[in-house]
Amino acid sequence: MTTSPHPPLLSPGYRSTVLRAPRQQPILLAPSLSELTGPVLGEGPVVAGDADLSVDGSGEAQGQRIVVHGQVRDAGGRPVADQLVEVWQANAAGRYLHKWDRHDAPLDPHFTGLGRTVTDGQGHYRFVTVKPGAYPWGNHPNAWRPAHIHFSLFGRAFTQRLVTQMYFPDDPLFAYDPIYNSVPEFARDRLVSQFDLSATVESWALGYRFDIVLSGNSATPMETS
């Protein structure tokens, strides 16, 4: 029996889970073709420039420019090629471009915080962005989220769908963050990117590597035809 790396839905330290986590046990479902297939979104929603969050049509975002890259694989270690990767994040000051974010930090006119790309034939993706700031939230007194980038991945099957958050190495806020700590201790380091000198671009941007492994099985293409 393998131990799940995923957080329990009810994690009371993260207050929003208390009224939103289902209380009934989920019913075990043997995946059928409905679950073993999934959308092939590829380039569909992606437009040119979506993989570079650090510039918009009229200027450059403020902050520490970074490259974030990695490989997406399935549980068997096979690369997940040609699949959509979506990211979103706060700006360098720790502020989201969202009507509900009231944090007293500046918005950046050249930063939306949205990125999209498609993995290549070997499952690799690469974004250019700025390092997001930490920001306060109302979960508990003096609560601050460690800097993070939200990631959304589809894999090859409905079973493999994953939304997660990528963190940065050695963040002192890890010890105080109930969302990061909702993950079983043995798996927390899988959410932390590594500084990557080989992806660092001289005189331009620091590199970080974040590899992603998707749980769940998929049908082979032949089985779906």
């Binding site: 929003s16 979103w88 990125g115 997660t164 798996a187």
Partner: peptide, 20 residues
């Protein structure tokens, strides 16, 4: 970095930025 499955995390309150 470990090779095991990557854990899930919440979409958070600002999901509409990335997923709309």
């Amino acid at each position: 970095m470990s090779a095991g499955p990557t854990p899930s995390q919440t979409v958070g309150p600002y999901l509409s930025i990335g997923l709309t």
